[in-house]
């Protein structure tokens, strides 16, 4: 989308590397025609000068092609782009599931606890039976704390991902 205002050719690029190469190698798997006439597949440096066309052999082009930001890998659905997306989804899912497991433990455990130890129902704290104190009062702040923690972590995951992918 913003290929026009950030020509990849002049970008200071990230670590030299195997990345871009491997992605180019894997590219065709997900996207059979990397040269299809979409805007972002134009030769990087000649994007604006419509009449001039850079003619090179495919090998040379692959070798000299500047390493572009991960957003482009994602847009072109290259192997690397897929790896980026999968890692983001996996870390978000892991975070979500850890909250779910904790909630399941507490919420699923309480009825079992009341069933196995009926004596708990007779315990009183400040005159309030323990189950009532737990279910009618304490559980709500617990939810809020869980949610607050999750929101912080999820935003951090996203920020890390943005930095990884959008290195400019």
């Amino acid at each position: 989308m913003n290929d026009d205002d950030t020509p990849p050719a002049v970008e200071p690029t990230a670590p030299p590397g195997e990345r871009s190469e491997s992605s180019d190698a894997e590219g065709p798997r997900a996207y059979p025609h990397p040269e299809e006439p979409s805007k972002r597949d134009e030769p990087p440096s000649g994007a604006r000068q419509s009449n001039r066309v850079l003619v090179t052999s495919p090998r040379t082009r692959a070798a000299t092609r500047p390493r572009h930001p991960g957003t482009r890998e994602i847009d072109e659905q290259t192997g690397l782009g897929e790896v980026y997306m999968r890692s983001l989804i996996r870390s978000q899912l892991r975070l979500a599931l850890s909250v779910c497991v904790a909630v399941t433990g507490v919420i699923g455990g309480l009825p079992a606890l009341f069933l196995l130890a009926p004596g708990l129902g007779d315990l009183r704290l400040l005159g309030v039976p323990l189950p009532w104190l737990l279910l009618a009062v304490l559980i709500y702040p617990l939810f809020v704390v869980c949610a607050w923690w999750y929101v912080r972590q999820a935003e951090r995951v996203e920020q890390d991902f943005a930095e990884l992918v959008d290195h400019r």
Binding site: T71, I74, L88, A162, V165, D166
Partner: peptide, 8 residues
């Protein structure tokens, strides 16, 4: 899943 700050 991609955050809105990313231009993808």
């Amino acid at each position: 899943h991609a955050p809105e700050t990313l231009d993808v």
